[in-house]
Simulated assay, not measured.
Amino acid sequence: MLFSIVVKLNIMNPTDILILAIGGLVSGIMAGLLGIGGGVILVPLLVSLGNEPIKATATSSLAIVITSVSGSIQNWRMGYFNLKKILYLGISALFTAQLGVVLAINIPPYLLLALFGLLLLTNIYLVQLRKQLLAKGNTDKTPFNPTIARIATGGAGGLLAGLFGVGGGVIMVPLQMLLLGEQIKLAIQTSLGVIISTAVSSSVTQAYAGNVLFIQGIILGCGGLIGAQISTRVLPKLPDHVVSIVFRSFLGILSIYIFYRAWLSYQGSAS
């Protein structure tokens, strides 16, 4: 096993290895800082290196397992790991992640990317909507049943984890804020813990389907492990409004790039 890994590393382009390591590091930093798992960086990165979208999402899930475990261990050591909240969201996410994988395998690549871009734009709106509720004084109270809201939040996160290989945090953070009235930093820390279950669930299914690129995933995951350790230490020190601005700006920039990749994929399939 170790020998085969060494052989594959020798075959890989050194530049690609460096890009993957740096990309993993950046994704790990963003995972701990924004609770997004890092897939919103890893999927576009893997696609830009010439991998099929389905393999990119599958490999991203493997890397996210390593990153989310690293960040959650650090959150636990710092006292920011609420197991009860994580389990409430994680149980439904486990099941819906499998559904997401099935859908991802049967969706055309360009459509998969386009849906991913729409997801990012939707999340910008959800975060802004929560900001407006806070401005009106609705800080903690929500009109939603907490149990149903948790099932919906975890289920949506799991579905998107399997579908896009993003961990699910891009939807779980806004939904926790909107449906459960959570503050953004608590939502991020909870999301990172839930991502462990969604990433494991989706990556196992994708590996069984033969879509996971293990070497690339391990390189990304090792970079993410280091990045998550850095950002989970920084997050508690940042003001909520700064984290919110960074989160929305990041999603906006990334959505533009994803739509561009979707258009190129569509052009390629049409020719």
Rank of each mutant, 00 (worst) to 15 (best):
T139N: 13
L99W: 03
G32F: 05
Q216D: 12
F3E: 14
L264C: 11
I196C: 09
Y125R: 15
F144S: 14
L178V: 12
S231R: 10
N75T: 04
L49A: 08
G210R: 15
L133G: 10
A149E: 14
S72F: 04
D140N: 12
Q229H: 11
L112Q: 00
P108I: 07
Y80L: 13
A187K: 10
G23K: 07
P174K: 12
L163S: 06
R233G: 09
G137T: 09
S255Y: 09
G193D: 04
V170P: 00
I245P: 00
A21H: 05
I215M: 01
L120Y: 01
K8G: 02
A207Q: 08
I258N: 00
G39Y: 01
P108M: 10
F259S: 04
S60Q: 10
S255K: 05
T147F: 12
V43N: 09
K141P: 00
L159D: 06
V127I: 13
S70W: 05
G193C: 12
V47A: 04
G162T: 13
G168R: 12
A149W: 02
Q176H: 04
G37Y: 02
I256K: 00
A161I: 08
T142C: 15
I54H: 15
T232P: 05
L121G: 08
G165A: 04
F144T: 14
I171Y: 00
I19W: 13
L220D: 00
I64E: 05
I171G: 04
T67L: 03
N138W: 13
I91G: 08
T59Y: 05
I41K: 06
M177R: 07
G162P: 07
R248L: 00
L9N: 07
N123I: 09
R150C: 10
T153N: 12
I17R: 04
A199D: 13
I124R: 04
A114I: 03
G28L: 11
L112F: 02
D240W: 00
L18G: 05
A63S: 15
L264K: 10
N51Y: 15
I22G: 08
Y125K: 15
A149K: 11
V6C: 08
T198M: 07
G224P: 13
L33F: 10
K237A: 10
L121E: 00
L83K: 07
S203Q: 14
S191D: 05
I66S: 03
S48Y: 07
Q176G: 15
L186C: 01
Q176T: 07
V47Q: 06
R233S: 05
L99Q: 05
V243C: 01
V234M: 04
G210Q: 08
Y260M: 03
N138Y: 15
